[in-house]
């Protein structure tokens, strides 16, 4: 254990990976809270899957594998995919979940086709794009972490700036609209922030598992508090905790994948929260029920 802690601060690779995982956990946990509260948990899944063809196209168009270029491609594609979902829901009778399913698989399918095409090309310098499928934390560099921090920081700043407007959008959008706030524009703003949160994590966790980091920290945090600010802060904290724990655990043995371990850590936090959180937790519920039953039982004996 002391060795692990020592490595966390002094081993370059582990330190970089842990820092990146922490940033990704904070950003996705924080912004994922809105998706969970708005019952759009699966939006993250659509965004991350829709990002894949963007990564491939960005590489095909520029020939560059610079993270910033690929992340930009991912962001544009993820954003377009989400706008398409919103557009389909608004202009047809197709429901949100169906629209999500369609767009997600179409974009992901195109992404896989493009990836295969890139891999079969003569110039075999391409290898490595498939790391975006399941993530490859070990390849992350200090400059990637700086990129992640900058993007995530901007997203979090915007969220804090528009705190009141986003709360209104999440709780009662129609009422917000009667107050004169452009609800559709706010919806697009929030979705854009979520897109940023997701592309920040793609390189580490991959498109397939990324949505878990959007949903899990927020669901865990919701169990512990009834205040929006606290919930969002907690979700960020849980995300960071899951990120760092996943990175550290994966460093303890060879060939343990970081991304999936981060997701498992986040899931463990959900499980713990669902069981032990006061008020909402299962254990707490059971204890209260037993206490009530015993009290009723006693009173029942006193009153014949």
């Amino acid at each position: 254990m002391p060795d692990l802690l020592h490595d966390l601060f002094f081993d370059y690779t582990l330190r970089t990976v842990a820092l990146g995982a922490a940033i990704l956990g904070i950003v996705s946990g924080t912004l994922g809270s809105y998706a969970v509260l708005r019952r759009q948990s699966l939006l993250g899944d659509a965004i991350s899957h829709a990002a894949l063809p963007g990564i491939a196209l960005a590489f095909l168009l520029t020939g560059s594998k610079a993270p910033l270029v690929l992340v930009l491609g991912a962001a544009v594609a993820g954003w377009l995919g989400t706008l398409l979902v919103m557009g389909v829901v608004r202009s047809t009778r197709v429901k949100f979940d169906s629209a999500l399913g369609i767009i997600l698989s179409v974009f992901f399918g195109i992404g896989l086709v493009l990836l295969t095409f890139i891999q079969k090309r003569e110039d075999a310098t391409q290898a490595g794009l498939d790391k975006f499928l399941f993530g490859q934390a070990a390849t992350i560099l200090a400059q990637d972490v700086v990129t992640m921090a900058a993007l995530g920081g901007v997203a979090l700043l915007l969220m804090l700036l528009f705190w009141k407007e986003l709360k209104l959008l999440s709780f009662d959008p129609e009422f917000g609209s009667t107050l004169g706030f452009p609800i559709r524009a706010l919806d697009i703003l929030l979705t854009t922030l979520l897109v940023i949160a997701i592309v920040v994590g793609l390189q580490m966790v991959g498109v397939v598992l990324m949505s878990a980091l959007v949903v899990a920290p927020a669901v865990a945090a919701r169990q512990w508090t009834d205040r929006l600010g606290l919930m969002i802060a907690l979700a960020g904290g849980f995300g960071a905790l899951a990120g760092v724990s996943g990175a550290v655990i994966s460093s303890t043995a060879a060939r343990l994948p970081t991304g999936p371990l981060i997701v498992l850590c986040a899931s463990a936090l959900v499980l713990i929260s669902l069981c032990f959180a006061p008020n909402r937790g299962i254990v707490w519920h059971a204890l209260r029920q037993r206490r009530n039953r015993r009290r009723l039982h006693v009173e029942g004996e006193v009153i014949p």
């Binding site: 509260l37 019952r39 709360k167 999440s170 709780f171 009662d172 129609e174 919701r222 508090t225 009834d226 205040r227 929006l228 606290l230 919930m231």
Partner: peptide
């Protein structure tokens, strides 16, 4: 029309 389980006072 709203979710009364929303975390707010």
């Amino acid at each position: 029309s709203v979710d009364w389980d929303f975390p707010t006072s």
